[in-house]
Structures are given as C-alpha cells and as structure tokens.
Design a protein around this nucleic acid. Structure first.
Length: 415
DNA sequence: TCTGGGGTCCTAGGACCC
DNA sequence: TCTGGGGTCCTAGGACCC
C-alpha cells in the first residue's frame, strides 16, 4: 500500500506558518516578478480567484476581498519542505519525494490505514504547522487520485483510502479524466471524442486499444487505475538528466548586451546545479523569446555541442554567449531567456564530497579545478582529497596526470 | 506596463551507415 | 531499364507533471 502526502496550498501555507494571524483568511502567492498567481489557499479559491492569472488583471478583485498577497520566496518553501520530508522519512524508509510539496510513502504492517493516515496528517500539523491531505491506495496513480478525493471531500477529513474500488465507482464516475495523474487537457480533449469523460470511463477501457491510439503512458495509467502496479517507488533521488535555468524579465529587453548578461547569469546558475550533482555536460541549449502576448513574436533556440564534457563555468558561459549572438535578432522586445545543460554524465575525475555544501573552501577548490581542467583538458585532473598518494593512485588507474595541492594554497580564480 | 520556472518521457522523422 | 532496405542514432516537438 502507498500513501501520497500532499501539502494543501503549499506556498500559501508556508507563508501562514510565520503569519498565524492569516489563518482562515484568503492568501495568494505570486510567481517571479509578481507576474502570475501560482498558489491560492482554499479561502482564496472560494472567492473564485483563478490560478495562473496575471496579477495586474486580478488585482482589483484581490483588493476588493482584502486578499493577502505574497511575492514568492522559494528559499523559504524549500526549507519548510525539507523539514516536512525529514519528518516523513522517520515514518518509513521507503519514501519517494515527488515534488516540493508531495511524497509517496510505503505503508506496511498497519491494520487501520485510515487511522494511520490521520496520524501522519496530525503529526505534520503539530510539528510543522503544515496542513496536508493523505491518499492511500495500491498504486501511485490511485494514491494520487485518492489524495484528490481527500482534498475535495470535507467529510473524509483529509484522508482517503481506496480500499475496495467497487465501493468508489460512483465517485469515479463524477471525476473528470483530466484529474488523473498523467492525463492533461490535450489528452482529455481527445478522449472526449471517444466518449471517455470520467475516471470510471477510462478505467474500463482496453489497455491495448488505448495504447495503439494514445501510447504506452496512457496504457500504464489504465493498468494502474485497476490496481496493476506499473510505476515504481523511487526511493533514491535520480540524478537530473537535464538542468535548466530560465526567467522572464520584469520588463521588455531590447539590447543584446542586456540579454547576454542574463544568459551569462543563467548559465552560471545552471552550472552550479550541474556541479551539485557532480556532473559534466556535453551540450548547451540557449533560448530567447518575446512575450507570447506580443504583436511581434519571435522565439529561437540553439543547441551547441562542446568539444568535451565539462562543468567549467567559463567554457559554459562563453559558449552560451556565443550562441546568444547567433539567435538574437534586433528589433524585438524580449520577455524571456534561458540556458539548459544537456547530455549530462557523471564527473568521475573529482571526488563528490568536495561539492557538498557551499563552504569557502569547496568554492575555492571548484574554481581551481576549473582552471586546471581548462589548462590541461577536462579529463586529466585529479585533486588530492585524501592525501597526495590517493590522487597519484587515481591518476595511475586512469592513466592521467595528477595535480595535488593543499586546500589552503588554492588561489581564487575570478570568473 | 505587467502573463511562472522548472523538469520528464515518448514519438516521429531525418540523417547516416552498410 | 532497373533506382534498396533495414537498422541506429539524433533531434525536435508534443504532452505531461508540480
């Protein structure tokens, strides 16, 4: 059995932890640059405030109902999330952190699963002041669905256990297919042509027939809706296969110089993410776009293949800037730009423990490694993490030259 | 004036090889 | 006069998630 624990209106609830005076009052949180509403709590939803609505459009309604508005504070949300996940991990080792506000947990050895779900909910509220709902079922897709039902139905008190599916058929008939995990608006629209409207309609389809028309993913979803396990619990976080950093600008940007500065900035941040998971990248993707709502629309992107896999900031930033020059076209007001790092591979040259934490020492060291890799080629450098002997022995194994130094001797390299 | 920021997986079709 | 075909790799794009 699996439980999906999902925070209620996560960002808004995070803000309320530090503003208990706002309990029971409508709260919304805005995206970067205060562009759109990204979270509404239940009180705000009750006022018919739509999600992902531009702030400037909805501001009169928010003012009218005295809705408390927050700019987003992702550091805070990450912090609260980490504490909740740590708390959950004490309940069972088999746990998958699915997103900033959700986790799947394996439930074994409990007779009364509803009571156990209530216990989880109570624990998180008491210790972290975060309201959550718990969905319990045999597969991940059903646990997600159970959580959805728990959120909608007041009488379930935040916990829904799909024990015997035949008891839930009437509920399944009332839930539109697009509420199923993996079924978005596009597929829902195509399913409608087949008269598949509700969760129950989809459950009854032949998986084989659906696979032909919609692909393997939807086939698996149908199997999961019928308690046939297809999606595993991923208890170890998988390393990212791509790393991105992109932002909308707070106002239109016309000059290539400003675009380049942003791109350099995003490339630097993406490289930080790359290093944190101890990877090298082989390709860089750069994109610039005007607003979708502009009269004069332009969007372009370019993928550049590097001569060798690297995590060298300067190589990555320089390549990104060169790519920018190729895709930038004069005369447009740009609204957004981004940098992606693709084709990642594990960096076997460097001991991963250097990169944990952001201490002054490890930053110095990363920069030195950059400098050396740049000079000698990225495959060749080993740093003595556990003494000179270890570096030389690694170097011998890999038939590469070694470089050793004491951390205190490392120079700071300006980027 | 101002319209999010990340990710993943799958598929179709082109390029290329023998 | 006849003008291959199968396999693999890569890429772009579509669809989904929170």
């Amino acid at each position: 059995m699996l439980a999906l624990v999902d925070c209620n209106s996560c960002y808004a609830s995070c803000e309320q932890i530090f503003r208990p005076d706002l309990r029971g009052k409508p709260v919304v949180v805005l995206s970067n640059n205060d562009g759109c509403i990204v979270t509404r709590n239940s009180e705000a939803k009750a006022l018919s405030i739509p999600n992902l609505e531009p702030y400037f459009k909805i501001k009169p309604l928010l003012d009218k109902h005295q809705v408390k508005v927050f700019s987003s504070n992702y550091e805070l949300y990450g912090d609260v999330s980490a504490r909740i996940m740590t708390l959950l991990s004490t309940l069972d080792d088999n746990m998958e952190i699915y997103s900033i506000d959700e986790a799947f947990i394996q439930l074994s050895g409990f007779n009364d699963l509803v009571s156990h779900g209530q216990l989880i909910k109570k624990l998180i509220w008491q210790q972290q002041r975060m309201p959550v709902c718990v969905g319990i079922a045999k597969t991940k897709t059903l646990a997600k669905l159970a959580n959805h039902i728990a959120k909608k139905s007041k009488k379930l008190d935040g916990v829904c256990y799909l024990s015997n599916l035949t008891n839930w058929i009437n509920v399944f008939r009332k839930i539109p297919v697009n509420n199923i995990w993996g079924v978005g608006s596009r597929i829902a629209k195509r399913l409608k042509l087949w008269d598949i409207i509700s969760v129950q309609d989809l459950r009854l389809q032949s998986p084989k027939r659906i696979r032909k028309e919609f692909g393997v993913t939807l086939e698996r979803t149908i199997l999961e809706l019928n308690e046939i396990h297809c999606f595993d619990l991923e208890t170890q976080p998988q390393p990212k296969k791509e790393v991105f950093c992109s932002r909308s600008f707070s106002k239109k940007v016309f000059s290539i110089q400003e675009i380049k500065e942003s791109i350099a900035n995003y490339a630097f941040r993406a490289t930080e993410k790359l290093r944190r998971q101890n990877c090298l990248c082989k390709k860089i993707y750069v994109t610039v776009q005007t607003s979708r709502f502009s009269d004069h629309i332009y969007s372009n992107g370019l993928t550049v293949t590097l001569p060798f896999p690297t995590s060298d900031c300067r190589v990555i930033i320089n390549s990104a800037i060169k790519a920018t020059e190729k895709i930038y076209q004069q005369g447009y007001g740009y609204a957004r730009a981004g940098v992606g790092l693709l084709d990642l591979s594990t960096n076997t040259n460097i001991q991963p423990d250097f990169f944990h934490g952001n201490s002054e020492q490890s930053i110095k060291l990363m920069r030195t490694i950059d400098q050396l890799n740049n000079r000698f080629g990225s495959e060749s450098i080993f740093i003595a993490s556990q003494g000179i002997r270890r570096a030389w022995s690694m170097a011998r194994n890999f038939k590469s030259p070694a470089y050793t130094t004491r951390i205190s001797d490392l120079p700071i390299v300006r980027i």
